[in-house]
Amino acid sequence: MIITHVRGHSALRERDEDLDTSWFSQLDPRVKIVGVFSFVVVAALLTRPEGVTIALTAAIALAAASRVSAKRLIVAYAAAFPFVALASASIFLFSGWDRGLTMLARTSSCVIPLLVLALGTETFDLFSGLRRLKVPGMITTLLMLTFRFLLLLSDELERMKVSRQARGFRGGRSLLDRYGLRVLSFTAGMVLVRASARADRVYEGLRCKAFRKDMIPWRTSSVRSRDMAFLACLAIVAGVLAAVQYEVLF
């Protein structure tokens, strides 16, 4: 006899196991956005290798302390790495390896905190935080709708993929497989058509809930002591980096 966990009707007694309860995710999104972006601006302006090394160390320390899943962080960094490497490679070719490495470290010290921010904050929280930071409603609403559309696209893509596999399709792994490529191109078209139709319905769903043009910020958190502590830590690091840059330290 197979005994397994039965979902559905037991939902009222369940909780989301992947709910992020780390201290970083609990911070006020506005504080996270301001703190991380300030750090990124300072790190991007560094030119001395000592400062860049400290910035990279601080970025890695933030990633480790934030308790954002290391696997997800590595995957996200790997996805961003080609762009990071491209920028570094051009410096490496024209100005020498030491400058190339500095560029790599500097770019990484900017990318890693941004990834921590994106992965350690619920996407809708991030948009809400931006909105509360007085970013124009049109921009945050567009971001939210775009994000929802991307979710729809991935959902439809997954359905089409399963549907193809269920009917025995195994092609499309070679550029010479003309039939496979034809099927894949039809799939891509169909995904867009279906996602567009669903997007219309989602938009109608929003209008059913009196949505007009602007996503009104819905979370009303206040800045607490731990948010201030986080900002203070980042301010100290930024201060150290500035001191190193202007040779007050080292």
Partner: peptide, 21 residues
Amino acid sequence: DPEDQIFMPTVEEDVAFGPRN
């Protein structure tokens, strides 16, 4: 299809979405 009507990240926020608008 409820998937088309649910937008927000948590149930209470989704339910509050309409009254807020």
